[in-house]
């Protein structure tokens, strides 16, 4: 949105990141400052279009005079803060978080996480073979979504996207406690029985492919999901008058997935069922 809200004013704060001063607008997070300083920070539960929940703790940094490490995604940068992003303590915690996740969750399709495993030398196998895992089976309850909680890292993103960060449908919640916590509808009823309105915003924010569009799932199952052969075209949804931007992921001249740019002011990456799935008529009558 064009900054015409007269209440918006911008002042800057300066913090030190790895010895270099970085100026960012007041209210920015340490993560924003790290990004401004050109430092790549691993994140899993963070998304620019959601409220930070600081649950995964992979983005932790060392802040002078803080007893523990702090999550960079949700801690506001304060004037004069001194931050280290690559100390032994930071590297240790990031590595452990990745090992913890890798030891209990199927990260085989977590493309964003894989490079961090390498960077931090994470070895999820070192807890042994006989460890508790998510141990969930794939759920297919309709033609649009697939839920595979064996891949779920409990990052809360889907809950936020379904709830008051976007859709306000509240069909899912974190349930249970501790390692037994799971994303669930009420009493774990199927999605079609739940309040779900199939906006797909949960799928869009999932960092590990625990939530997938059925189109992608089917192509993967047929061993025909080829991201390297896909292109992404930004356009505008054909339905109502909101003007949501769509990113059409195409493979072999077919739309295989629809996302929306997080940084676009109209809907910040969120769509409704029509924008997310209503494209199928484009290929109506084609040989399938």
């Amino acid at each position: 949105m064009t900054a015409t809200d007269p209440n918006l004013t911008e002042t800057a704060v300066t913090i030190s990141v790895n010895g270099n001063d970085v100026a960012v607008p007041a209210g920015s997070s340490i993560l924003d400052a790290c990004t401004a300083a050109g430092i790549d920070t691993p994140t899993i539960c963070y998304a620019e279009n959601l409220t930070p929940v600081n649950a995964c703790r992979v983005c932790v940094v060392e802040v002078e005079n803080s007893r523990t490490l702090v999550p960079s995604c949700s801690r506001t940068a304060e004037e004069g803060m001194v931050v280290q992003t690559d100390s032994d303590r930071v590297r240790h915690s990031r590595k452990m978080v990745l090992e913890f996740l890798g030891s209990g969750v199927d990260l085989s399709q977590a493309d964003e996480i894989a490079p961090w495993m390498e960077t931090y030398g994470a070895d999820p196998t070192r807890f042994g073979d006989d460890v508790e895992t998510m141990n969930e089976s794939v759920r297919i309850e309709d033609d649009l979504y697939v839920r595979d909680y064996d891949k779920c890292v409990l990052c809360y993103k889907c809950v936020e996207a379904c709830g008051d960060d976007a859709q306000h449908t509240f069909a899912i919640s974190m349930s249970g406690r501790g390692f037994g916590a799971r994303i669930a509808t009420e009493f774990d009823v199927t999605l079609p029985e739940s309040a779900c309105v199939y906006c797909g915003n949960c799928v869009a924010v999932c960092p590990t492919n625990a939530l997938q569009f059925k189109t992608e799932f089917d192509l993967r199952k047929a061993d025909n999901w080829r991201e390297e052969d896909q292109s992404v075209t930004q356009t505008v949804c054909s339905y109502c008058g909101v003007g949501c931007n769509l990113e059409l992921h195409t493979q072999d001249e077919r739309i295989v997935k629809v996302t929306s740019p997080n940084d676009h002011s109209v809907t910040s990456g969120h769509l409704c069922i029509k924008g997310r799935f209503g494209w199928q008529y484009v290929h109506a009558g084609a040989d399938d």
Binding site: R57, F100, F127, G128, L154, M174, G180
Partner: peptide, 25 residues
């Protein structure tokens, strides 16, 4: 601690389980 961890953050949710597993093992 394994039972009482709320499960919100990864270090505690998984760490408490792995610690318990080592002791049991």
């Amino acid at each position: 601690f394994r039972n009482e961890s709320c499960g919100q953050c990864v270090p505690c949710r998984v760490g408490a389980v792995r610690q318990h597993e080592v002791l049991v093992r």
